[in-house]
Amino acid sequence: MARPEFLSLKDAIAAHVRDGDTIAMEGFTHLIPFAAGHEIIRQKRKELTLIRMTPDIIYDQLIGMGCASKLVFSWTGNPGVGSLHRMRDAYENAWPCPLTIEEHSHAAMANAYAAGAANLPFAVFRGYRGAELAKVNPNIRSVTCPFTGEELAAVPALRPDVAIVHAPVADREGNVLIEGIVGVNKEVVLAATRTAIVTVEEIVDSLRGAVNPNACVLPGWTIKAIVHVPGGAHPSFVHGRYDRDNAWYKAWDAIARERDSFLAWMDENVLRSGPEAFARHAGARA
């Protein structure tokens, strides 16, 4: 049985993320893989297509550092705070490089990940009725139900080359437990065509028998690389371990508003830093 490799973050990104890849880093507010995003920035990946339901600060950072050429999303912003300034600067002013967008609704993307996981070519759902996104996104189409004649929305399945998620626990066989707001983390790992990378808070001996029978566990053979990065979701959070750093999210607004302050922050906290810097957030309940 294939098992994932336990790698350093640097080696995992170097081995599995290539220029031009389509990458989905998921985590619905919860479990956002910030440390992994920072490593992609340090390794200066280019021309990435970034998929994510809710592009959060992590995609603001990747876009502002010139790693991305396309964004596929359904809601973009700093939740409860305001705009993603770096994303808007790239989209509206092509700084630091041009960014194209493909925009959906949450229902569309959630269905499209599930279709990808189910190895279907497209997702079908009752959606976009009377909504103008269908007019501006050629990937929003319709199908007719062969049984009832009802017209339903259709979007292509999401099949990223690489899925990256954060999780609380892996065991020594590489099995991964996801709990709390699970988002689309299971779907995105199973929808990935080439690689799934999981960063984790903790590595335990065995999950077998240690969790309830219906727990959300991804078997190790669905994952290529496991990386131990305590605190690696900060300023996002890990259920039962550390809380969302809402004050940090509010502070980001001023940092990202101007190009200079953004670049200075990234230089100090990302380019001249490493995954070990996240450890101070692990277990720090607010």
Binding site: A110, N111, H239
Partner: peptide
């Protein structure tokens, strides 16, 4: 009040938490 749609407070005080795919398919749709 949650700052984001997915603050931990929402999960900690919920009866149950389902995946986002399930939320939009089984519950909303």
């Amino acid at each position: 009040l949650p700052l984001s749609i997915g603050d931990g407070e929402l999960c900690n005080t919920a009866l149950t938490t389902v995946s986002v795919s399930e939320m939009f398919r089984y519950w909303l749709q």
